[in-house]
Simulated assay, not measured.
Amino acid sequence: MKKSRKAGLLIVTLVIPALIFTFLQFFADNHYDLPYYHPLVAPNGSVVDERGDTVYQQFAKLTLKQDSTRDTLSKKLIGQVTVVSYLPAECRDTCKLVLSQLERIEGLRKEIPELTILTLAEKGAEKSADDGWKVIYADRESIERCLKELRFQTVIPKSKTSGLKSKLVLLDKKGFIRGYYDGSDAPEIDRLMAEIKILDYEEKLKKRL
Rank of each mutant, 00 (worst) to 15 (best):
Ser184Glu: 01
Leu102Trp: 09
Cys95His: 06
Arg151Phe: 15
Glu144Arg: 13
Ser184Ile: 01
Lys158Trp: 10
Thr119Arg: 05
Asp185Leu: 11
Ala129Phe: 08
Lys148Asp: 15
Asp182Thr: 05
Arg145Cys: 00
Leu102Arg: 09
Leu147Ile: 05
Pro157Gln: 07
Tyr181Asn: 06
Asp172Trp: 08
Tyr181Gln: 07
Ser166Pro: 00
Arg151Asp: 14
Cys91Lys: 12
Ser162Arg: 05
Pro187Cys: 07
Gly175Cys: 05
Lys148Glu: 14
Thr119Tyr: 02
Ile156Glu: 11
Asp139Pro: 00
Asp182Lys: 03
Cys95Tyr: 06
Thr94Cys: 01
Leu115Phe: 12
Lys158Val: 08
Lys167Tyr: 01
Glu114Trp: 01
Pro187Asn: 09
Ile112Glu: 11
Val169Tyr: 05
Leu118Lys: 01
Lys123Val: 04
Ala89Asp: 14
Ile117Arg: 11
Ser142Lys: 09
Glu144His: 13
Leu120Asp: 08
Leu97Asn: 01
Lys96Ile: 10
Ile105His: 01
Asp185Gly: 03
Val155Met: 12
Ile189Glu: 02
Ser184Phe: 00
Pro157Leu: 08
Ala125Tyr: 04
Ser128Tyr: 04
Leu102Asp: 03
Tyr180Gly: 04
Leu170Lys: 04
Lys148Cys: 03
Leu168Ile: 08
Leu170Arg: 07
Glu106Trp: 08
Ala194Glu: 15
Ser162Tyr: 07
Arg151Ile: 09
Thr154Lys: 14
Arg92Met: 12
Asp131Trp: 02
Glu188Ile: 02
Val135Ala: 08
Glu114Thr: 13
Glu188Thr: 05
Ile136Cys: 10
Ser100Cys: 02
Pro157His: 07
Glu149Met: 14
Cys91Ile: 13
Arg145Asn: 12
Arg151His: 15
Arg178Lys: 15
Phe176Ala: 07
Leu192Asp: 08
Leu118Phe: 04
Glu122Met: 10
Ser100Phe: 09
Lys134Asp: 14
Pro187Trp: 07
Ser184Asp: 02
Leu171Ile: 03
Ile143Leu: 15
Ser100Glu: 14
Glu114Asn: 09
Glu126Gly: 06
Gln101Ile: 03
Gly175Pro: 06
Lys167His: 07
Ala129Tyr: 07
Phe152His: 05
Lys148Val: 02
Ser159Met: 13
Tyr137Glu: 12
Glu111Pro: 04
Leu147Val: 03
Ile105Asn: 01
Ala121His: 04
Lys110Asn: 13
Asp172Ala: 10
